[in-house]
Write a protein that binds this DNA or RNA. Structure first.
Lengths: 357, 357
DNA sequence: CCTTAGCACTCTCCGCGGGTGAGTGCTAAA
DNA sequence: TTTAGCACTCACCCGCGGAGAGTGCTAAGG
């Protein structure tokens, strides 16, 4: 709708006014009038002058009017510009930082809990929906495998990754396998395959099985069977969500239909994850503002997301979901810091580890 | 507000009309007029006669008018009566039954999954919110304990109950414990404590520790320490929920405020569980209709719940949450059947079990 | 005595119209 | 280039009145 060509340069004054409009709108959620900008009086200009500038900004595609004789509202382009250059990136305050550090430091017991706490922090400190996408298990690097008998022919397979994620899965075996043999099998797998991703391991096992089908002994057959069942087909990425009820306080969700669509979208985890992972190639924080993506565009909602991982290994994504008029100045540093913090926590607490003998 | 004393006997005709009003209201969600009852013509009466009866029913506290010159709406008392005697309990159709059986039979891999599938079934087949409260781990009977090393001083404690529930918890130890010793400890615990509830075990261990503090050897000390950390303070009951977005389709949730209160209530899991467990002493299906309980009363919502368990051991509760005008004829048998079915699945698949040597 | 037709009455809902106020765009003067 | 002034537009609010649905009551009919 807005032709980027048509956007001329913005004079410093234009920028100042645009910024003021955006900031005001972010706080009020209501169309901003020229008069209110004038009254705030940053520039000592009259409403009429500001009206002129605002008309120009509208022409350039940065502002829009819901209807004639209403104030103006920022467009996507305006938000993008705001984030790029207009906004002064507020750092997290020391106390916010401390709060995060303490919360995350107190209990790094287990990577899953860590991620739960992170999504809660995201939501709590932004009053929006916090999201954390857990790593795909198939891509994680194996540290140990253990098998615990659960019932006659049921075995719990516990996979621990080098990054501290623990995944359990109950598998059914063809016959009952004695406890000692389970121990031998898990020792064998851990010794031979630690350091590889689950996917690699599974592939290698499948190949082995195909090649030596005839001459494998009983124990190796069992091993392959167990490993295949235990390591294959990990469920897709899981997403942790927190703060959906805070979202309902936003004025943009004052009618039911939007709320419904929103919750339906949330229920479709697969698409949510896809959106979160979209363009997560780089390092820093990305912002999707009412993108072509169904979820964000129809509702005028945005997503601020950052990747996390250990070393240069990208494990997952975390972010905040809320109305396009969210407080980017606060939210971007928050997402940024939590992304780093989570990465650090993961690499610190779960480096080193038990060697098996 | 309604004095039960004032309710006289209902003639068969009164009952017939009351039933018709309730059934109609359940389907339409709108006040029922005398004319519409007459037109349906079950009794061949005119609207005027029916008006008389309806006036009586209102006097007796079974019907209410939102305002003069509106149709009538059933009261709580009416729903209670409806469920007790007016309603003809529709059995589940063979195909519904088959659908449940097949869904539940295909994958009883693990008790947690079983419960997830159950809550989904509840929601899917009723178009309401389905709920399942998982058993409190502290009350379950121990079958085996295993310890799996995860990092230097972190151990994953895997508790398997006789009913097939598996609970994991990462615990931090004071010092690194060699793998063989972990095996010895888990063998010791399983051999000595299988068949008792986690709470009993914890108490006994604490007593032991207090008594013999001085003269315990290193290994016993470690055992007690690990067991105490692994078995204590299991988190409260967990509740699985499914179908919240279906709920938003209900006409009673057409304004935001109710939706908000509802989601806030849902977020407060503890109270939700409390409500579900309330008066779950008996065996059958219970129905709470807009009870004094905050959640249901303010919103005109009801809860249909039933316990499940193994043998005579009551493990948890499952149910459906929806508008008071829900289709009890269908929903009560559904909850009933799923309660039984879940109980059966739990006792069947996880009876017997591995003995440890 | 029960049932029903008829009628007046009540109350919600909806559309209409006018008044109000916020906000704009334009023009002309400083 | 800025600003004051003014006409114009449009959403919002409010009150009004008619339409329609539904009731309660009464009186006639089986």
């Amino acid at each position: 709708m807005n032709d980027p060509e048509s956007r001329g340069k913005l004079s410093p004054r234009d920028q100042e006014i645009l910024r003021d409009v955006i900031v005001t709108y972010i706080l009020s959620a209501e169309p901003v009038s020229s008069r209110s900008v004038a009254k705030r009086g940053r520039l000592g200009l009259s409403a009429a002058s500001i009206r002129n500038v605002m008309a120009d900004l509208e022409e350039m595609g940065y502002l829009a009017q819901p209807h004639t004789s209403a104030g103006r509202v920022p467009t996507r382009a305006a938000y993008h510009l705001f984030i790029q250059s207009l906004m002064e990136e507020r750092q997290l305050t020391p106390s916010e930082r401390r709060y995060i550090d303490e919360t995350l430091h107190g209990r790094p017991a287990d990577a899953d809990e860590l991620m739960g706490v992170t999504s809660h922090l995201l939501s709590e400190m932004s009053n929006q929906v916090g999201l954390v996408v857990a790593p795909v298990m198939g891509e994680t690097v194996l540290k140990t495998v253990d098998f615990v008998p659960v019932a006659d022919r049921k075995v719990l397979c516990v996979v621990v990754s080098t990054t501290g994620f623990i995944d359990n899965k109950v598998i059914e075996t063809d016959e009952e396998i004695p406890r000692e043999e389970l121990v031998r099998i898990s020792n064998y797998l851990t010794d031979n395959f630690a350091g590889q991703t689950l996917r690699q391991i599974r592939d290698r096992l499948l190949r082995t099985m195909a090649e030596e089908r005839a001459q494998v002994d009983r124990m190796l057959a069992r091993t392959i069977d167990l490993a295949r069942k235990g390591l294959e087909e990990r469920p897709g990425q899981e997403v942790l969500m927190d703060g959906t009820s805070a979202l309902l306080a936003q004025p943009e969700l004052s009618d039911i239909h939007r709320v419904r669509r929103m919750f339906e979208a949330f229920a479709d985890k697969a698409r949510l994850v896809q959106m979160l992972n979209q363009c997560m190639s780089g390092d820093g924080v990305r912002v999707l503002i009412g993108d072509d993506n169904a979820l964000t565009s129809e509702l005028d909602f945005s997503l601020v997301a950052a990747p996390y991982g250990v070393g240069d290994r990208h494990l997952g994504t975390l972010g905040i979901f809320g109305p396009s008029r969210m407080e980017y100045q606060k939210i971007i540093p928050l997402v940024h810091y939590l992304g780093e913090r989570l990465s650090r926590a993961l690499s610190e607490s779960f480096s080193g580890g038990p060697d098996r003998r």
